[in-house]
Nucleic acid binder design. Structure first.
Lengths: 193, 193
DNA sequence: GAAATAAATCAACAACTGTTGACTTGCTCG
DNA sequence: CGAGCAAGTCAACAGTTGTTGATTTATTTC
């Protein structure tokens, strides 16, 4: 048996379909309120396959965030001076797909961080892959506190927009540009005050 | 039967005990992950009493936030100039009980906002009792956007501290005072930039 | 074409969810 | 005292949750 081209009914494809459907659900609801049967229904597969492929719900969630994590949340080659403008663009969310994807990642983290099961996974991710890189970019003596402030603003805006459904950014292109300016200004303040 | 002193085995007291236990749980977990049996266990009562007194889980949650809401989230007599210092104190959380209680309210809101059942209750509360008063205090032409920015910072810090368990504020009194200064500065920036 | 094997399905499981009705306890009033 | 009634208990419900074993279906290899 030549193992390379096995996957007779495309196991990899269904695995990917489950992963995509799960990401979509976790983007809109919390870990606890999403049922495996809903995810399976969206993906067009049987529920049993999820536990089979991912070892269970927790394994599935862990893989969803692990996939997103690979395309680093905070892009490395970035100076402290570029940070405010970069984060402001991230927030307004009309950038390229990668950037949008990155903001969605924050939403997934926010939605499930209060679940006993998923919480630890999320917390580890935040410390290791967000706060660490951010502090490294900032690099000054108060780097840690400032990284916290930046992330707080980022998280807060994420909460308001997607979870609380506050629509400060749902205006005309002009209004959005104005918002971006103000947010950039806010991020600058967090770095220099 | 003189109705005034009825409550033979203190119905009001058990009701209060349930409410207190529920608040404590909702402060630490999400709406979906908290079970009525856990709450009943903490309060030392039978599970059945919860559905009996509050009409169900959703009714219980609605009453928990309604109680907190009474002592207004944003105290009314406050000028725009006083706002940054007030919010910074709120964040550092070593104020009086009322203030601490108010910050906890934000945590309850954050934890359960992603639940399909509890989400709408929370969203209504945010719009009506937080963003409204905030915008009114600010009062200038960009009041709405600025209220959003303030709340975003407030929410973001709440997320980081309690949900993500980032410990920027767990230092010495000196460090806490320094943090308070920086946050006040950040709130000022949100109002004036 | 037949055996072998991976992929997908089905049905059922045990555990838990919130909720309800019937029952028991304990207090108060006539 | 004993009737009445509120407060609390108990057990069970119908529904859902994640998960597992046996079974069927489709694909490949000899």
């Amino acid at each position: 048996m030549t193992k390379t081209t096995v996957r007779k009914r495309e196991a990899a494809a269904t695995r990917a379909a489950i992963l995509a459907a799960a990401r979509e659900r976790f983007l809109r609801e919390s870990y606890d309120s999403v049922g495996l049967r809903e995810i399976a229904g969206d993906a067009g597969v049987d529920v049993a396959l999820i536990s089979r492929y991912f070892g269970g719900k927790e394994g599935l969630f862990r893989e969803v965030v692990a996939v997103d994590k690979e395309e680093k949340l905070i892009r490395e080659p970035l100076t402290a001076a570029e940070l405010p403008a970069y984060l402001a663009q991230l927030v307004v969310e009309d950038g390229d797909d990668h950037r949008q994807h990155r903001m969605e990642m924050f939403v997934i983290m926010l939605r499930s961080a209060s679940s006993p099961k998923a919480g630890q996974i999320i917390r580890d991710l935040v410390h290791l892959d967000v706060l660490g890189p951010l502090a490294e970019i900032i690099g000054d003596e108060h780097a840690e506190l400032r990284a916290n402030m930046l992330l707080a603003i980022l998280m807060g805006i994420g909460v308001l927009r997607t979870i609380m459904r506050v629509d400060a950014l749902d205006g005309s292109p002009d209004q959005r540009a104005e918002c971006e300016d103000r947010f950039r200004c806010l991020f600058e303040a967090a770095l220099s005050c």
